[in-house]
Amino acid sequence: MLDATPFRRQAQPARPPLEAEAAPETPARRVRKIIHVDMDAFFASVEQRDDPSLRGRPVAVGGARARGVVAAASYEARAFGVRSAMPSVTALRKCPDLVFVKPRFDVYKSVSREIRAIFSEHASLVEPLSLDEAYLDVTENLTGAPSATRIAEEIRAKIFARTGLTASAGVSYNKFLAKLASDHKKPDGLFVVPPARGEAFVEPLPVARLHGVGPATEARMKRLGIETVADLKALPLGLLQERFGKAGAYYYGIARAIDERPVRPDRIRKSLGTESTFFEDLHGFEAMRLALLPILDKLWRQAQALGVSGRTVTLKAKTADFRIFSRSRSRSEPVPERAALEAESLALLRPLLTEAASPLRRGVRLLGVTLGALSGPDLRPAPRQLDLGLS
């Protein structure tokens, strides 16, 4: 049986295939072979590759201005605690020698196309998640290779040979585990989670490692005594659904390393959004405006990283009594810049607060912004709609 151990490009001794690859198939259920590939500190690594003076130095891609935000950080910067989405002033306090470079999204997109071309040499089922990561279903692959582990090794080697960049990969029998595995031995690592070890692999993990568990949900879980995935697994489905609604069934499944989502190569993203739940309710326009700024920063970075733009802006607000309100506005052309996204969002927020007897005046516990009617190099242009002003 193959142990779940990391692999590096530098050492490639002969090894047995992933257990999922050796296990016999049954008509009732076929074990899939899923690879998740994630580039290592992608934006920052491209900058260090192209500028030798940056190699070995702490680098942040983003703006060093007062309201700047770190879009990506090199591993040298991460050693000081610098992370993406961190305000630039905070990053500089943590690492006074931090070097800021302006993002070059045209270059990142070009490198991403090279990487996707490598994926297409091995699999027809490729689901890109962003410029620097993707899922591949290699159960049936284009090279006829019986081992997903070998395919992952070949992909990583090709990426390094053609781009000079390193990638980490996770191999397992579903998307959830493959993504966790790719992050397990970063940077420049390969980690395998066979079917027999899926549940044992996730049980000791803190619940914060699970996709969909943000700070607010983590805090709720901890109040219930849920610290690890093993704690989550110990709770019955009914209780999880009672406490977490529709997400309860999702938590129940992943606590048992179950994820039936297929790799979708034809998935067309229709919208892109982000939101934050606050530990204390927000009151007043200015408090909500300030809370929206990091949300908008994150959304704009995601749109740039994916190479997409959108014409429809949707603002979402959840009140202290859990009622949800949303307002949308569509433009004739895509939102051109971050400042315009902010202006559209605030224009949607202000009327919600000025309406007579507005429920938002009692407090807001969540705010979110979505960019819709997306278009981009990998998307079909969204059809135009009349600007109705409301969702």
Rank of each mutant, 00 (worst) to 15 (best):
A234D: 13
K270E: 13
T277I: 07
P236A: 05
G225D: 08
A287F: 02
A230H: 11
L232C: 11
T228V: 03
R243L: 11
G248R: 07
G225A: 12
L235S: 08
A234G: 10
L272H: 03
P262T: 04
I268M: 10
A249P: 05
F244Q: 05
R269I: 11
E242Q: 14
I268F: 00
G238N: 09
L282Y: 00
R261W: 11
L240G: 11
P262E: 15
L232S: 11
A234P: 05
E280T: 15
G225L: 08
G225N: 08
A247K: 05
L235N: 07
G245K: 04
T228H: 05
L235P: 01
G284I: 07
D281F: 01
R269Y: 01
E260N: 09
M288A: 13
H283Y: 15
K233P: 00
H283L: 15
I226W: 12
K233G: 02
D281C: 00
F278W: 10
A255I: 02
E260A: 15
D259L: 02
K270M: 02
G248H: 02
R243G: 06
R243P: 08
R264P: 01
S271Y: 03
A230N: 04
E286R: 09
K270N: 09
G248C: 10
F279R: 13
A257C: 01
G225V: 11
L237Q: 13
R256I: 03
E286L: 05
S271M: 09
A255Q: 06
